[in-house]
């Protein structure tokens, strides 16, 4: 309990955002999710807030994204932009909280830097949304999905190689 008392307010605020923003992303769908899903998500989000560096964060984000893809009736409604921003916000908040122990206050300049970066990353969101809306109304194009699959595979292999190279380098 003493350790919790030493947490800096800014670090606590970042953790609160980590917990709340995934739930906001779900709420943005405008439909009520199943209670067990909501409970599991809330518990996992809480765990992510306590340990922002843990892999629970990936599970939370993938769960929300998957729920939007599978359960939401109209996934490409405009509020998906809000959900996308909330998910990225949760990621950035966790990143800010994981720069050090909770006793470390989130530096204002670091926070501003990451807000700018997040806004830059969010520029992709409306572009992707418009493209997805366009694809949704277009007739079926099997070649497009093949190209997408090849692109995704290329990105994944490149990222995997880069990560492996980084972790094997004795610097």
């Amino acid at each position: 309990m003493n350790r919790v008392r030493q947490w800096q307010p800014s670090a606590v605020a970042a953790r609160v955002l980590v917990v709340l923003l995934p739930l906001l992303a779900v709420a943005a769908a405008g439909q009520r999710p199943a209670t067990p899903f909501l409970l599991v998500l809330a518990v996992l989000a809480l765990g992510w807030g306590v340990a922002p560096e843990s892999a629970v964060g990936q599970v939370v984000l993938v769960l929300v994204v998957g729920w939007w893809g599978v359960r939401v009736a109209d996934p490409l409604q405009p509020t998906v932009l809000l959900a996308g921003a909330a998910l990225l916000g949760a990621h950035v908040a966790a990143l800010l909280a994981s720069y050090g122990p909770a006793r470390l206050a989130v530096d204002r300049r670091v926070a501003l830097l990451w807000v700018r970066r997040a806004l830059l990353a969010l520029l992709v969101l409306p572009v992707a949304w418009v493209a997805a809306r366009g694809l949704g109304s277009a007739p079926e194009q099997p070649a497009l999905w093949t190209v997408a699959l090849v692109t995704v595979a290329g990105v994944l292999v490149t990222a995997g190689l880069a990560l492996r190279e980084a972790s094997s380098d004795e610097v």
């Binding site: 893809g69 996934p75 490409l76 998906v80 996308g84 921003a85 998910l87 992709v124 969101l125």
Partner: peptide
Amino acid sequence: PVLVVLTAPFLV
């Protein structure tokens, strides 16, 4: 496609 929309910002 909504999965691309939601995860595209993470690519940056």
